[in-house]
Simulated assay, not measured.
Amino acid sequence: MSTKIPISIAGNLVANPELTYGESGVPHAKLRVAVNQRIQGPDGSWHDGEPVFHNVSAFRALAENAANSLKKGDPVTVAGELEFRGYEKDGERREARRIVADTIGPDLRFGTAAYQRSSHTAVAGADAQVEAGVQASAAVEVVSAPAYSVSTKNPVVVPPFAPAQGNEMTF
Rank of each mutant, 00 (worst) to 15 (best):
A79G: 11
A164K: 14
Q116C: 02
D127E: 06
T152E: 06
R94C: 05
E92V: 01
D102P: 00
V76H: 03
P146D: 13
P163M: 08
V100H: 06
L108P: 07
E141G: 10
P159Q: 10
Y115W: 14
P146C: 04
V78K: 01
Q165Y: 10
E168H: 15
V130M: 15
N154V: 00
R94Q: 12
V78T: 04
L82P: 03
V76I: 15
V150N: 03
A113Q: 10
Q165P: 01
A164C: 11
R97N: 09
G105E: 06
F161G: 03
N154H: 10
F110H: 11
P75K: 13
G91A: 05
A162Y: 09
L82D: 03
A101W: 04
R94W: 03
A124I: 12
E168P: 00
V140L: 07
Q129C: 03
V150M: 08
F161Y: 14
D102S: 12
T121M: 05
D102Y: 06
A164N: 08
V134Q: 08
E88M: 09
R97W: 09
K153F: 05
D90L: 06
D74K: 06
V158K: 12
G105H: 08
A132I: 13
G166T: 05
A122R: 11
Q135E: 13
L108Q: 12
A124L: 10
D90V: 05
R98I: 02
F84L: 09
Q116F: 06
Q129H: 11
Y115S: 09
V123Y: 01
V100C: 06
S137T: 14
T77D: 00
V156R: 07
A128M: 07
I99K: 01
V156P: 00
A96F: 04
D102W: 04
Q116W: 00
P160W: 12
G133S: 15
L82S: 04
P155F: 12
A138I: 14
F84S: 07
F84I: 03
L108N: 14
F171I: 07
A132F: 07
S118V: 02
A122L: 08
V78S: 00
I99P: 01
D107I: 08
A164G: 04
T152S: 15
A139Y: 02
R93F: 04
E168K: 10
T170S: 10
P155G: 09
V158A: 01
A114S: 13
A162V: 09
T121W: 04
H120A: 12
A122E: 15
A126M: 14
E83K: 09
T77F: 04
T112P: 04
V156A: 05
S119P: 02
V157N: 05
T112V: 12
A124P: 03
V158C: 00
G80P: 02
R117N: 07
Y148V: 11
T112K: 14
R98W: 01
S144Q: 13
V130T: 14
E95D: 04
E81Q: 09
E88G: 06
P160A: 14
Q165E: 15
Y115G: 02
S118L: 06
R97C: 11
L82T: 00
I99N: 01
M169Q: 15
V142C: 06
T121F: 05
E88V: 11
E141I: 12
V143T: 13
R109V: 09
A113Y: 09
E81T: 07
V150D: 07
K153W: 03
